[in-house]
Amino acid sequence: MTIKYNRRSLLKLTGGTLAAASVASPSILFAQDSYPSRPINVVVPFDTGGYNDRLARAFAPFLSQRLGQPLNIINRGGAGALLGHSYFLQQPDDGYTLLCTSAAPFLPLNVLTQNAPFAVTDFHMMNLPSRDYTMMATSTESGITSIEDVINQLKADPRSLTIGIQPASADLVNLMLLADTVGISRDELRLVTYDGGGPARNAVAGNVVDIALVGGQGFLPLADKIVPLLIFDDAPRDNWGSAIVTEVAPGADFVLGSQRGWGVHASLVEGSPEIYQTILSAVEETSKAPEVIEALSSAQLATDWFGPEVSNRSLLATAAVMEQHLSILQGS
């Protein structure tokens, strides 16, 4: 008990009086112990039950084995992950708080549309194994069979189809960029806005809207109720067999969908390189371990290893395209 008491009060001291500026102090305080010497927290900026929560909870036991300390999952949902991301940055950058999040599109969205008190570069993503993509789909009952049908109909009359979509999303950016490239009037499109990807997918599967643009992986359980029309990526994904955007509209800009995975404070990489290296190798080892790959892929969770360089580059590229087309995200 007394040890715990001391540690808590020390933390309070560093967190409260020295404030966030003195970034390295916690690691100095624990310098006598080798990292990690106590349980590690994993912040998930979404409520229980979502993809990131399930990813964190499935991955944590294996990562915990390699780090030698238990991992506590902390859910901080709300406001499009803004609350959770802010909370994460407020924690000391001593390697005892990790982040599991949909870095794209939520970090750029927080910054671009929500006046977030941080920059995308305050976060360092170690690995973003889950890379979703926008998919345009229609119901098997709609009579639409190909992306050409859609483009021709919308060219003739932009109001002829209802389009299920989430506001301020990567999907919306992709739709508008496609419209620009193939020459469809953006402003006249009949958008039907949904609060989440799930409701939008259900609506198109039930033929309530004519087409929908939503994250493609979520469509997998509904595969036999929909016709995939177009995938916004430069290569085919998940065996959908649909057209891909680089063929249909060469030269069209597009953004990847959700990029989810593991991050730390950017200041940790600079401030405590040894600790960062310990975490990074543990995450890499865990991601590549066969038993982890088996356990996660059976739960339809991604565990591919891309590494920090590819992950951060991809995140920043997405952020740049989103910033370039900010007006679409902000609506009017």
Binding site: Y5, R8, K12, N41, T48, N72, I74, N75, R76
Partner: peptide, 9 residues
């Protein structure tokens, strides 16, 4: 609950 309470003592 899946997060800690802020405590003083």
């Amino acid at each position: 609950i899946p997060f800690p309470f802020p405590l003083a003592v």
